[in-house]
Simulated scan of single mutants.
Amino acid sequence: MTADRTALAGARLVLPGGVTDAGRLSVEGTRIAGLGGATEPGDLDLTGYTVVPGFVDLHVHGGGGASYASGIAEEALTAARAHLEHGTTTTMASTVTGEIDEVCRQAAVLSELVEDGVLAGIHFEGPFISHNRCGAHRPDLLRDPDPALVRKLADAGRGHTKMFTLAPELPGGLESVRMLSELGIIAAVGHTDSDYEVTLRAIDAGATVATHLFNAMPGIQHRAPGPIVALLEDERVTVELVNDGIHLHPSVVELAYGTAGAERVALITDAMGAAGMGDGLYPLGPLQVRVEDGVARLVEGGSIAGSTLTLDVAFRRAVTVLGLSLNQAVTSLSTVPARLMGLGDTIGTLEAGKHADLVVLDSDSYELAAVMRRGEWIVGADRFARAGTPA
């Protein structure tokens, strides 16, 4: 086969219509050229492996020892590469609370990487969030979501701002949600002290995402259902979940799936710079984080500070711990986030004509074996033998 054409044969393929055993997927250039057909000489033999679409992360702050909030392009490249090697072929970079002008500067750097094809968009998390639910955000830098300031940050993304997390109960919150919706930017409810009624108003105003549902918001009370119930019960809302076994008990993740279904769940990492690294001290915006036994917590106060999760681990946990089907896991890790970002026509499923963004997993353990992005092998290409030639 020529350098820009290849085919994977003998693999289990997780397709939109179901799972195909011993399937064949051909790649030409950067695209999936076709599905099906008999194995040909030169095909890569993927017997014993499962192929799924590349993962899409809506919410990630860093990895590989680097942070998207550093404002340094080389660090952002390091973070993107670290997650790419774990199967995240499409990344929306997330910022953290900082001085408005500094976050605007970070956005300018990130927007250049969007234009270069490294990132797929920018997500602003903070500073327009609740003091009472600020988590790993510096309280003294938090602000009410004045629509003019929200618009300033949105514009700093130079057309690449995809999502804003804010607390709708704050002054200007609902107005900002309406403005973001009109601009075509996802308004996400998170780090909020909102009640049930205000959350419903935010959804009616255009909010369509729950930022890491359950975390950094009031819990469910029998006479005060709070934001969680409002976000779970409304079919217009997609809920983010951090499935690392630390942020949420598996039974809580199962509750969310039982209520919303896989079509409304996006599994995210919310990872900070320690993802893919070892224990130690790491920056998260202007704050310091200590990672011990893979758990990230603020040095001051001890709040959980993002995660060290990668999406290959989230996929494996979804199937082996939660008992989700392969199609359900693919839906939450690829299809739903791709659709939210407006990229469903090009990524998120294994279909002819879409980008050749693929993750290859061992069919027994679901350990990551290889990653392809835009038809280029990132890791693992040397694992596979080629089908023999005729005698």
Rank of each mutant, 00 (worst) to 15 (best):
V239K: 10
R201T: 12
D270N: 14
T211R: 03
L284P: 10
P283L: 06
Y257E: 11
A274K: 02
D193L: 09
G278A: 08
E254S: 15
E263I: 03
V239W: 10
A202E: 09
G226P: 01
H212R: 09
P218S: 12
R201I: 09
T211L: 01
A296W: 01
A256F: 07
R201N: 08
L298W: 06
A205I: 02
F214G: 11
A275Q: 02
A230N: 07
P250R: 06
L213E: 14
V189W: 10
S303P: 04
G294I: 00
V252L: 04
M277F: 03
A202C: 11
N243R: 14
L200N: 11
Y196R: 10
V237N: 02
G276H: 02
G258F: 09
I246P: 08
E197P: 02
A274S: 15
L241C: 10
G285D: 01
D279A: 00
A216G: 11
G219W: 04
L281R: 13
A202M: 10
E300Y: 06
G258S: 13
P218E: 13
H222T: 10
T259N: 00
G276P: 03
T208A: 13
A275N: 04
I246A: 02
S251T: 13
G206F: 12
V198Q: 13
R223F: 07
P227V: 14
G226R: 00
P218F: 08
D195V: 13
E292W: 05
I186M: 15
G285A: 06
G261Q: 06
E233D: 14
T192C: 04
G226S: 05
A230Q: 07
A216T: 00
V253N: 00
G276T: 02
S194T: 09
V189R: 13
V289F: 05
